[in-house]
Design a binder for these strands. Structure first.
Lengths: 341, 341
DNA sequence: CTGAAAGCGCTTACAG
DNA sequence: CTGAAAGCGCTTACAG
């Protein structure tokens, strides 16, 4: 079981080759203390010749910091965790920190197990990535290192949560539609149980209210986050309100279904009906027959911001509360003329 | 900078509380040596009361194994790395190993940097996840720990590569079409530069050959991995060969575009033309108007198998060469009657 | 400027 | 059955 590395070059080897003590070799390599220029040079050369890599375990044991953070996701498989992960990994890597990845698959037992493992590995901090942006129970209690929540909000206001600004994103989309002169705007979206759905509906409602415009149908059409629902809801909408001239969709997937139905009904997009999606999921948004104007959640930035706040907390600069990171509107043909690529 | 953990409960604390030496405490907790049942019990209780977690860094320093593997991906953002990652993480987690995640973003400099970091962190092994299944240069040289390649094949036959069996997967699909009595089969697929495209075409060709059937159009229609190409190729195909009765597509995305065009041309799926996709990308395959029969690459299994081989190699059981893991055909409506959900 | 010593938290022969 | 000692690979006061 003891699988010692074969090629383990240690600082002792370097010191021997350079003809100095390990203490001096250590100082020379770490540019601390006063070391004679000549000695430093000899040590560095020896280290290079031996391809010496300091053992991070030994360093961590001494310093008490492993330069590692644990990244705990509820559900890696969904499409939201990935970009967040990517942004975080990138930001942490730039800060010389490594990422220990754990996917709990929504399982509480697994989560506790992973937290224990991560702490025993002396992670310097924890990033908790949610699979939806609803509130979630805080896990911070009993964790002796900084914790930052991303995408899903911790229910403890003493935690720091980095969230996508769904209401603001929907406002961007709605303002765009209003600016285009659309006056009969409807909203087809996902399950009302999701905070994302409610927040987006609220953002749209606010903008329409400010513009003195009604929401077609009176209420958002809540349903499912699927193309199927998009198709179904659109055909109901067109029957009940044939005068609709814009549809804000709760997701690109829904928008994709909506556009299929509009096509079937002979409505032109965007001439007759402007359509806006949500998520900027390229595969739907950029590839469909009529490329889709949509709201990008800036998830990579979300991950990066979370990582930066974690690093700041490690340096003693700890924040609490909620940070809502704005999305951005991506203009494509479904609301207007082809934009120059 | 020295951020020592506040709540660091060490084995010394446990030993003191249990009234024994650290050596005995260690043995009691690790169930080694002979320790009096009573002593063991006292130690365990003390450990529990103090919520003791052994410091994995210290353990690793002694044992020479960190129970950690590095997972190096070329491109996490694509849709293939994720399931592989998931399967690997899961299999490794079950084996008590943690995953250090690194996304090189296809950058060679970054890759070298990450490999150095991972080795200095004393990873026990490396998993290299490709972003496509083409051959790629081996990275193994100079790496003193076992390495397993997943999804992309190493060009060094002394490495172990775990790959999806694209030719076999296409055979499954083709045999299904032939068994359904389709005789005019065409192939619309992605870029010929991709091995996946060529292997799938080869699988289809082989089955058609065995059945004495021609490939409609004589050659595979190579193009791009996009809906757009699917739409375009399908309309060319229908003009040139209106008698086509089945289309094997190189991806679900292509299939999605193909089906849009079939719809526009008034061809019914599957009655007039059977369509098979590739990838089982649920969002396209299960959600489109006519749910899609397709080939699942079993990517999670691929990741899990790679992890298991890595663990085996750690235990001295090292394999080399290529393992092709079969895909599976997922039957939906695009080739036949609705299957019972 | 350099090196011997102590120590990070743990495990493992080795005495007793 | 238990504990003192040595050691994993490194860093950091502390003498010299």
């Amino acid at each position: 079981m003891a699988r010692r590395r074969s090629s383990a070059v240690t600082l002792t080897d370097v010191a021997r080759r350079a003809g100095v003590s390990v203490a001096t070799a250590s100082k020379a390599l770490n540019a601390r203390d006063d070391v004679a220029a000549d000695t430093r040079h000899r040590v560095q050369q020896a280290a290079e010749e031996l391809a010496f890599q300091p053992n991070a375990l030994a360093r961590g044991l001494i310093s008490g910091t492993s330069r590692t953070v644990g990244l705990l996701t509820d559900e890696l498989a969904g499409r939201f965790a990935m970009p967040v992960l990517l942004g975080a990994e990138n930001a942490l890597g730039n800060g010389q920190m490594s990422v220990l990845l754990c996917d709990t698959r929504g399982d509480t037992f697994r989560r506790r197990h992973y937290i224990r493992t991560l702490l025993s590995r002396q992670v310097d901090g924890l990033l908790i990535v949610g699979d939806k942006n609803d509130m979630r129970p805080s896990l911070t209690e009993g964790i002796p290192v900084p914790v930052v929540y991303v995408y899903g909000e911790s229910d403890d206001p003493d935690d720091l949560s980095i969230l996508a600004d769904d209401e603001g994103g929907a406002r961007l989309a709605a303002e765009h539609l209003v600016a285009l002169g659309r006056r009969r705007v409807a909203h087809i979206t996902g399950e009302e149980g999701y905070r994302a759905a409610r927040d987006r509906a609220a953002g749209l409602g606010a903008v329409l209210g400010e513009a003195g415009l009604p929401l077609v149908g009176g209420v958002p059409m809540y349903g499912a986050w699927s193309q199927r629902w998009g198709r179904h809801a659109a055909s109901m909408l067109l029957s009940a309100h044939p005068d609709v001239d814009a549809i804000l969709c709760g997701s690109d997937q829904i928008a994709s279904g909506v556009m299929e139905t509009l096509w079937d009904f002979g409505r032109r997009v965007p001439e007759d009906v402007a359509v806006v999606g949500y998520d900027n999921w390229e595969i739907f948004a950029a590839e469909c027959r009529t490329p889709l104007t949509t709201v990008d959640l800036n998830l990579e930035q979300l991950g990066a911001i979370a990582a930066e706040h974690l690093i700041a907390a490690l340096d003693g600069d700890r924040r609490t509360g909620v940070i809502r990171h704005p999305g951005r509107l991506v203009l494509r043909e479904s609301t207007g003329p082809r934009t120059s690529a």
